[in-house]
């Protein structure tokens, strides 16, 4: 894929940190994503998401009003497909990095370590946009298939040890086993 069209994408961002909130908003606008709703609590998200308007959720791991896992489980068990299958990218701070495994087990598509750099966020959104990741419904888990792999992160490409799945996104197709 040579170009990416964010013009019709709607994103919901939950970010209580006002600086991170401002930076993420500016990054997304730089991509060309204009339909952006920035909120600070999980409660607001629960009111807005059932409308089915959003194509992407970016959320901080530490919410002021509820546990992230609680919001994720609500999303992944929601009766509406537009909510249940929503791509979710979680943002996590230095002090909360131990929550990555918990978040994965609660059903996020991808985890980004803060501070968020434009290149890192872009690549993680592309990961969340991949069409070849099935949704799993089981007793103890609902969310994107966790048997999902892509290229080894290139430490030269990022300030953080984040994945850079662009090549996998470009080359995605049946049979790659991701």
């Amino acid at each position: 894929m040579d170009s990416f069209n964010f013009s019709e994408v709607s994103a919901l961002v939950i970010e209580p940190d006002r600086f991170s909130y401002g930076i993420i908003g500016q990054i997304l606008r730089g991509y060309g994503l204009e339909d952006l709703v920035l909120i600070t609590t999980g409660g607001e998200a629960k009111k807005l998401l059932p409308g089915g308007r959003f194509h992407l959720l970016l959320t901080e791991s530490l919410l002021p009003d509820m546990a992230m896992t609680s919001l994720l489980k609500w999303i992944r068990r929601h009766p509406k497909n537009e909510v249940r299958f929503l791509p979710v990218v979680m943002l996590t701070g230095y002090a909360q990095f131990s929550r990555v495994t918990t978040a994965r087990d609660a059903g996020v598509n991808s985890v980004v370590c803060k501070p968020v750099a434009p290149v890192t966020l872009f690549d993680h959104i592309m990961r969340a946009a991949r069409p070849d990741r099935a949704f799993i419904d089981a007793d103890d888990y609902a969310g994107p298939c966790r048997r999902f792999h892509d290229n080894t992160p290139d430490p030269e490409q990022s300030r953080r040890a984040s994945d850079h799945p662009m090549e996998a996104f470009r080359l995605s197709g049946p049979g790659r086993g991701l």
Binding site: S3, F4, F6, G32, P87, R130, I136, D137
Partner: peptide, 20 residues
Amino acid sequence: VKVTPVPNRLGTLLRKPGGI
């Protein structure tokens, strides 16, 4: 365990012509 292929609305929109 139920495995469902997901229609990824985000991916579909990003692939539309006219992007950057």
